[in-house]
Design a protein around this nucleic acid. Structure first.
Lengths: 198, 198
DNA sequence: TCCACCATGTAACTGGTTACATGATTAC
DNA sequence: GTAATCATGTAACCAGTTACATGGTGGA
């Protein structure tokens, strides 16, 4: 089953549609209005990707004729699409993903416990943490070695990057704690376990 | 003087060359080995951009025949190029830049006190800080309003983003302090003021 | 009636990726 | 002599941007 490569935007759309069946317009709004603002939101980006995912049968769009003639294509994931999403989410955390800013890793994590469950999410966090540590210390030793020959603004910009990664590193510990807490002291309500839950 | 738009990568190269005359290979190494790993580093990205900057006379490449026949094109900025760089660095901090992850803003800041001086850098930090605050609070209120209907991984991913921006916000204060300190208690040595200083 | 918003589409362009190709130099 | 690294280039491809186009719907 050779699926031609899916872009990050493609996975973002696939993941969102898997969370909740949506139209192209819905998805554009999400990118435009919520914290996912780093993604496209332009029709020229989203509609072609949706068509492509549809032609590969990873999602399917059904036209709603709810009120009047106004058409609205509601997409939902197919079993193949959901499987493809899980495959992407299951990839090991690569060092290169971390170096590129970890944006894609965060996107994957956001979909994780819906598509793969809590155990996978915790495991992902541990992998993420393990990948972050060596990169962080390489940045720190780079800074130590080059700080004196850099101008203040360069030094500070580098330090901002290091702070960002250290923050992520701390966040992984916090997130792991949050999962353990949700498993022990705060048992899930049935509605949170049920499949139909948004 | 209508200069066709320069990409972020183009500005990154222009800024680096302005800091220190470099060859394409030097620049590739910087992207591959230092903390600027989020940029390309592939020859297919860098050489065409260098050619374009050269054809616009923003940089000029002179071939070094240092030892033997091996050619190495050392680029340096022209006055026009340096002016173009300063123009980019002088743009006000836009809200949209912040939303896109502030990567470009950090790049600009890294070049700032070499190309525009300390006062401009401090001013930039203040603008940056001012732009960060409302975005941070919009993220926070979004999180407050939507947390209960989100899954844990989504909630945590959002929180990671917020932490990142809060970290940047704190960093701006730290950076401003660092500038004031360098101006008062730690007067610069002449070598740090001299133009030839890397 | 007219504006704002819902909703989808598409055509032209462009910047960057991947992958390949070439040749010089240095170190072993 | 051969492997690693220095150093530059280029050709094919593709994803995403910009900008434009179309038409439905609801409210003032």
């Amino acid at each position: 089953m050779k699926v031609p490569p899916i872009s990050v935007l493609g996975y973002a759309l696939l993941g969102l549609i898997d969370l909740k069946p949506s139209s192209g317009y819905d998805l554009r709004k999400i990118f435009a209005e919520t914290a996912m603002g780093n993604y496209s939101s332009s029709p020229g980006a989203i509609y072609p990707v949706l068509e492509r995912l549809d032609s590969q049968r990873l999602i399917r769009g059904v036209v709603e004729h709810s009120a009047g003639l106004r058409r609205r294509r509601l997409y939902h994931t197919t079993p193949t699409g959901a499987a493809e999403l899980r495959k992407w989410l299951s990839k090991p955390v690569a060092q290169s993903d971390v170096m590129r800013g970890a944006h894609e890793l965060m996107l994957r994590f956001a979909f994780m416990d819906h598509a793969l469950g809590v155990d996978a999410a915790i495991n992902f966090l541990q992998e993420f943490r393990a990948a972050l540590r060596p990169y962080l210390s390489s940045l720190e030793s780079y800074a130590r070695e080059n700080a004196q020959q850099m101008r203040l603004s360069g030094r500070l910009a580098l330090e901002s990057g290091i702070r960002g990664y250290r923050g992520m590193y701390d966040w992984t510990a916090y997130a792991i704690r949050a999962y353990h807490q949700s498993l022990t002291s705060q048992p899930m309500r049935p509605s949170q376990i049920a499949k139909g839950d948004l």
